[in-house]
């Protein structure tokens, strides 16, 4: 039953990165408040009939036709609204991932009180009244499974202007958040010394000795930026420390023989984070994937992504 419904919705509102709401995609039905309103109208009609009062008839009919007109207004408030997937930030298992969406309007029409939310997530309310587009962040826990996490269909809902009708749509924005493996500490990194080619595993005294500047490259840690220089009007530069150059570690799939896949990935993840925190250079060797030693945020993301997607199909996002 459930899957049949899902198939029907999939056919009706096919997944896409960008969806414009129109009559195929919008559903409308009286809300609970609307049903209560209907009950009130019934009582008013009874009063009109029993008191034989024409103006009471008039008021009852006016409120009823107001309800009819509200169908159009509620529908018009949703229709023409475009929602676009912007990005989904990676997260560790159990954490909340950030999903960014963009709401746009095609005509200069107001879209008021649009509630967005995934089942189980926090709902946000957006007004598209003064601006043409609006960026909206949503947060959703991503579950325990590493790999691509799909939040499912997003519910967009509004009952503006009278609250008597509920107008909604379920859109699949093909938005996937990457879930990294859960970091799992291991007592030590086995065979670390043997693996290092230059025996530079021993920390050098005063490892955070300042070494010099170099121009900023994308992915450099913000902590190493030479802010004072930037304030003086110089180029964006990064401070370099002597210890960095000397240490390079290979995180190898073969370091944890005999352990199950997930546990290996978790240990590797832990160590990657540990080295990254110290600012050391590290490389990754997985079956089929090799990432040369490097450091910085961009590198860490590449490594974590490789770990997260090990053995999984990359949908190319």
């Amino acid at each position: 039953m459930r899957s049949r419904f899902r198939n029907w919705v999939d056919r009706r509102i096919p997944p896409a990165r960008m969806v414009t709401l129109d009559q195929r995609r919008i559903f409308i039905f009286p809300s609970r408040v609307g049903l209560f309103f209907g009950l009130c109208l019934l009582v008013m009609l009874l009063a009109a009939i029993n008191f034989q009062n024409n103006l009471s008839y008039g008021l009852t009919f006016l409120l009823f036709t107001l309800f009819v007109v509200a169908i159009l207004h509620t529908y018009a408030n949703m229709s023409g609204l475009t929602i676009r997937a912007v990005h989904a930030r990676p997260a560790f298992p159990g954490q909340q991932a950030e999903f960014a969406l963009q709401l746009e309007r095609s005509r200069r029409k107001e879209h008021i009180a649009i509630r967005l939310g995934w089942p189980g997530g926090v709902e946000v309310t957006a007004n598209l009244a003064e601006c043409d587009s609006l960026r909206q962040q949503l947060y959703l826990p991503v579950g325990q499974q590493r790999g691509w996490y799909s939040p499912g269909r997003l519910r967009m809902e509004s009952s503006y202007p009278l609250g008597l009708l509920r107008c909604w749509s379920w859109v699949d924005l093909e938005l996937y958040a990457l879930v990294y493996p859960r970091p799992l500490a291991s007592a030590e990194l086995p065979g670390l010394a043997a693996e290092s080619p230059d025996g530079a595993a021993v920390p050098i005294e005063g490892s955070d000795d300042f070494y010099g500047f170099r121009n900023y490259r994308e992915g450099d840690s913000l902590r190493q930026i030479y802010w004072k220089g930037l304030a003086r009007g110089q180029n964006l530069q990064v401070k370099q420390y002597a210890a960095y150059a000397d240490r390079s570690v290979w995180l190898d799939w073969e370091l944890f023989p005999g352990l199950p896949t997930e546990q290996r990935l978790s240990h590797l993840c832990y160590w990657a984070l540990a080295f990254d925190a110290q600012g050391d250079e590290y490389g990754l060797r997985l079956p089929g994937v090799t990432i040369a030693p490097d450091c910085g945020e961009l590198h860490r993301e590449r490594v974590l992504r490789a770990l997260a997607l090990h053995g999984l199909e990359d949908p190319g996002l």
Binding site: L62, T65, V69, P161
Partner: peptide, 17 residues
């Protein structure tokens, strides 16, 4: 908004009335 809606509802109300 409310005025517009009531004005749109009025002619329909007359028909029903």
């Amino acid at each position: 908004k409310a005025t517009a809606m009531v004005l749109q509802a009025l002619p329909l109300m007359l028909v029903l009335f």
